[in-house]
Amino acid sequence: MHSIPGRRLIMGLFLVFLLLPIYWLVNMSFKTNSEIVSTMTLWPHTPTLQHYKRIFTDESWYSGYINSLTYVVLNTIISISVALPAAYAFSRYRFLGDKHLFFWLLSNRMAPAAVYALPFFNLYSAIGLFDTPWAVALAHCIFNVPLAVWILEGFVSGVPREIDETAFLDGYSFPRFFIKILVPLIASGIGVAAFFCFMFSWVELLLARTLTSVHAKPIAAIMTRTVSAAGMDWGLLAAAGVLTIIPGALVIWFVRNYIARGFALGRV
């Protein structure tokens, strides 16, 4: 009654459609370049780890991963720490302009990155943060802070009010209540919010590329630049791509039930 006839077939075909391009990327990352260019093989006949080895030993490659991780982690920490108190405020209190503020946050989450590319470039150059991880971390706050507020607000609303009231009656000060009681209660929510901040900052390229030039260049930018300049090193490109998928693939199991919620800003 719940599902439709032929559902196994439909699901199977769709999953194959999703996995096939990813398989091709993985497949290619284990092939030698001569095998890629000369023959069409469905699996690597002469499997090699040379591309991965090159990425892990060549500083211009692995520094990209370090740069990316640096600004992503910075951004996640900033976003979650400013969003937590705000989520509590939105969940518990009514105050002047709260609805407008909530909408304004949402509108920033939806603003096209292309619009901000140029003004961010000017702004961060003017304050001397250009080409540092801080520039990208702060720039990504524009979409991650609203996201974190929206997701956390949902989780805070799930905590009964009586808990706050009891804590205050027991003589907890606000900061102490917040850290000792509220944060542990919504720990899973913080995990989910952190995961989404991490993910959205990790997948973004346009701002990250615009705000860095040499020292803080993210892996995504290195992939687009180096490869086209050095001719097409397909195997290396594929290996670099596979490595960027890994952080998401590692944690996906833990957040599988929250994916829809995160993308719908905590509203599902």
């Binding site: 999703l18 390229l205 994916i259």
Partner: peptide, 12 residues
């Protein structure tokens, strides 16, 4: 598996 494409960097 459904969620996998959503978590891949856009340039990848």
């Amino acid at each position: 598996i459904l969620a996998l494409p959503l978590l891949i960097p856009w340039n990848v």
